[in-house]
Design a binder for these strands. Structure first.
Length: 561
RNA sequence: GCUCCUGUGGUGUAGUCCGGCUAAGCAUACUGCCCUCUCAAGGCAGUGAUCCCGGGUUCAAAUCCCGGCGGGAGCACCA
C-alpha cells in the first residue's frame, strides 16, 4: 500500500515523491497505524527512495496495473453555509433579530437578520423580530415600519414579532428583585462623577446605601426625580478590568414620549438590561450581535445569573460595511439634511432602499452575506463582490437595449429598411421588439471618435456600413447585411423616436473620510423607444455599457458593469 | 493609556476546536483563450499565499504552546 501511495504521489509531482507526504497519506488512510508510526517510517523512507529511482513511465505503469483503485479521487466535501452552532438541537433553536427602530435599515441589518434567519432555518427553529425600543428619545414609528419593509424586501421571514417596550412590567419586576437582593442600587451622582469614578475604579456613596434608601429612591424615579438625577446601577465590580462591569447603568429616566406607549413609562432600561431579560424570556437559544458588544457579554451572563434566569448562547460577528460607504446615522444624517444626497434611498447609500434603487436584488445580498461567513475578523469586503453576485442573478432577466452617450448623428445614405425586429435577450426568451428606422441614427461619441473614412463597422442587429464622412454629421453606406465577426460592432439609436434619459452613476461616497463631491455623475443619454414600455424597477442591460435599473420614465440608475 | 477581539494570495473566505488523507480549497479581481450580432452572462486556462513575525513541542504545525508585531473595538443615563 505504501508503494502505491508513493507511486501516486510521485506521478502527481513529476516523478518525485517525499517522505512527509507519504506518511501523512498513510496515516490518513489507516489511522490505526498511528501508534506504530515509528516502525512504519523506515519502511516509507525506503519505498520513497526506491520509487524515486524509477522513471516516470515505469511509475505510471506500475501504478495503473497494481494500484488502480488509488487513482479514483474522492471529492472533498466542504461545509456549505454557516458553521454549526454549539449546543444547537434540531427544531429547538430560537434566534432573534433585535433592531432599534431609530433609523432606516441598511446592509448591516441585512447581514444580522440573514444570519439570524439562516441559523433558524438550518436547525428548523424560529426567528423572532424584536424591536429594541427602550430609548424614546431616538425611536420613531416610521422606523418600525421601515425595518419591516426592509426585511420583507430581503425575504427574511420571522415567526414572531414583538417590542421590548411591551415587557416593561417584567423589566420593572426584575429591577426591583435585583435591588431587593442587593445586586443593584439607585445612584444619584451626576454623570461626570460616575464616569470619572468608573474610570478610576472608585465606589460612590450611593453604592453603600441600604435597602430602604434604595427602595425609596427607586420609587422616586417614577415621579419626583428628574431625568439625570437618578439611575439604577448594577452592583458589579468597580475594580474589574472590564470597564462595563464597573457598576453599569441598568435603568434611567427619560421623559420623552415613546412612539408606542407615549407617556406611560418614564423609567427605561438600557441596552444590557433589556437584552438579557428579553433574550431569556423569549426563549432565545442563540443570540448574535456584532463584535463591538463583545465586552458586554460578561455583563449579559452575570446579569442573567444574578436574576436567576436561563442563559442563551451569545456569539459575535464582525460588522459589515463597505469602503467609502458608511452606515452610521451620525454621518449619513447630515448628508441627507445638507442635501448632499437625495435622501435615505439615494443609490449611493448602503441603506436597503438605496441598494434596491440601485438595482441590487435581495438574493444577491443573501448570497453575499453568506459568502462572508461567520467571523470576527475586521474586514471591508469590496462592493464588487456584491455586484458580481448581483450580475449573475439579474443577467438572465435583464432586457438588452441600446443606449448612446454624447450622441453623434450618423446617416446611412442607402438605407432601405423601415423597421427591424430585435431580440430582447441573447439567450433567454424575453420576446422581441420592433424598432422603426429611416437611415438616421445616433451613435456614441466615443465610438464616433475612433472611426475614420473607409472603416467598416456593424450596426448591431442591423447591417454593416462603410464610413463615408466623419465629423458631427457622419455618413456611411451599407456594404453588407450579413454578420461579420471581425469588424467593430456598435450600438445605435434610431433618430425616428429617440428617448432622452439621464443615467445616475454612483461612485464611493467618501474618500479617506472626505465626502466625495463627485460621487454622483449624471449622464445624459439617448435610448430606444422601448424604454418607455418597461416598468419602473426593471433591470436593463444597456449593451456595451452596463446594467441599469429603470427609476422613472426619464431616469435610469446605473447598477454595475 | 487600559482591556478585549482579530491577523490565510490584491480582496472576501474554507480549513484551525480534535496536528497528518490539501506542497493550502472556493469566490472575487486581474490576464488569456473559447462561445457570442455586447466590453455581459457562460465555458476553459493562467497569474497570485514562505497561512503576520520569531522561537518551542512533534516523525509531522496554518492548526498546539510561549514571546513579539500589525489592525480593530470598547472604556455613555445610545443601541
Amino acid at each position: 500500500m505504501i508503494r502505491g501511495i508513493a507511486l501516486l504521489n510521485a506521478s502527481e509531482h513529476d516523478g518525485k515523491t517525499r517522505n512527509d507526504s507519504i506518511i501523512s497519506k498513510v496515516i490518513g488512510t489507516k489511522p490505526e497505524l498511528r501508534s506504530r508510526i515509528k516502525d512504519v517510517i523506515p519502511l516509507i523512507s525506503q519505498t520513497v527512495i526506491d520509487v524515486n529511482k524509477l522513471s516516470v513511465e515505469i511509475q505510471r505503469k506500475e501504478l495503473e496495473s497494481k494500484y488502480a483503485e488509488l487513482l479514483i479521487v474522492k471529492p472533498k466535501q466542504e461545509r456549505i453555509g454557516l458553521p454549526p452552532l454549539e449546543g444547537a438541537e434540531q427544531g429547538k433553536v430560537i434566534t432573534r433579530f433585535p433592531p432599534e427602530p431609530n433609523g432606516y435599515p441598511h446592509i448591516g441589518h441585512a447581514k444580522a437578520s440573514i444570519i439570524d434567519e439562516e441559523y433558524a432555518k438550518m436547525y428548523g427553529g424560529k426567528l423572532i423580530l424584536r424591536f429594541d425600543d427602550t430609548n424614546p428619545e431616538k425611536e420613531r414609528l416610521e422606523y418600525y415600519a421601515a425595518i419591516k419593509v426592509g426585511l420583507d424586501w430581503l425575504g427574511v421571514k420571522y415567526d414572531l414579532i414583538k417590542n421590548t417596550s411591551d415587557d416593561m412590567e417584567v423589566i420593572y419586576k426584575k429591577a426591583k428583585e435585583l435591588i431587593d437582593a442587593g445586586h443593584a442600587y439607585v445612584c444619584t451622582c451626576d454623570k461626570e462623577t460616575i464616569s470619572k469614578n468608573r474610570r478610576e475604579m472608585i465606589q460612590c456613596k450611593c453604592r453603600a446605601g441600604n435597602l430602604e434608601q434604595n427602595n425609596i429612591r427607586w420609587n422616586k424615579m417614577f415621579d419626583k426625580f428628574k431625568p439625570g438625577e437618578a439611575i439604577v446601577r448594577f452592583r458589579g465590580d468597580m475594580s474589574s478590568e472590564n470597564t462595563v462591569m464597573r457598576d453599569p447603568t441598568l435603568l434611567r429616566i427619560i421623559d420623552e414620549s415613546h412612539p408606542i406607549h407615549k407617556n406611560k413609562y418614564r423609567v427605561w432600561p438600557n441596552y444590557d438590561f433589556a437584552v438579557s431579560i428579553e433574550d431569556s424570556i423569549d426563549g432565545i437559544t442563540h443570540a448574535f450581535r456584532t463584535k463591538e458588544y463583545e465586552l458586554r457579554t460578561e455583563l449579559y451572563y452575570t446579569l442573567l445569573d444574578k436574576m436567576g434566569m436561563r442563559k442563551p448562547k451569545m456569539l459575535e460577528f464582525s460588522r459589515l460595511e463597505f469602503e467609502g460607504m458608511p452606515v452610521s446615522k451620525r454621518v449619513l444624517k447630515p448628508l441627507v439634511e445638507e442635501g448632499k444626497v437625495s435622501g435615505f434611498d439615494d443609490p449611493r447609500l448602503p441603506t436597503l432602499e438605496g441598494l434596491r434603487r440601485r438595482g441590487i436584488v435581495p438574493e444577491a445580498i443573501r448570497k453575499f452575506v453568506m459568502s462572508l461567513g461567520f467571523t470576527k475578523s475586521d474586514t471591508m469586503p469590496p462592493f464588487e463582490t456584491l455586484e458580481s453576485f448581483n450580475r449573475k442573478i439579474i443577467d438572465p432577466e435583464s432586457i438588452r437595449l441600446f443606449i448612446v452617450f454624447d450622441p453623434v448623428k450618423l446617416t446611412v445614405t442607402n438605407n432601405n429598411l423601415t423597421e427591424i425586429e430585435v431580440s430582447n435577450h441573447p439567450q433567454n426568451n424575453m420576446g422581441k421588439r420592433q424598432i422603426k428606422i429611416d437611415g438616421n441614427f445616433y451613435i456614441s461619441g466615443s465610438d464616433a471618435k475612433t472611426l475614420k473614412i473607409g472603416d467598416e463597422i456593424r450596426l448591431l442587429e442591423l447591417y454593416n456600413i462603410r464610413i463615408t464622412k466623419t465629423g458631427p454629421e457622419m455618413e456611411g453606406e451599407i456594404t453588407d447585411t450579413n454578420y461579420k465577426p471581425d469588424i467593430p460592432k456598435i450600438q445605435w439609436v434610431s433618430r425616428k423616436n429617440p428617448v432622452n434619459i439621464e443615467v445616475l452613476i454612483s461612485d464611493v461616497l467618501f474618500i479617506n473620510d472626505q465626502f466625495n463631491e463627485n460621487s454622483l455623475e449624471v449622464k445624459q443619454a439617448i435610448t430606444e423607444q422601448h424604454y418607455l414600455e418597461l416598468n419602473v424597477g426593471a433591470e436593463i442591460q444597456f449593451v456595451r455599457f452596463g446594467y441599469c435599473r429603470k427609476d422613472s420614465a426619464n431616469q435610469a440608475i446605473y447598477t454595475h458593469k
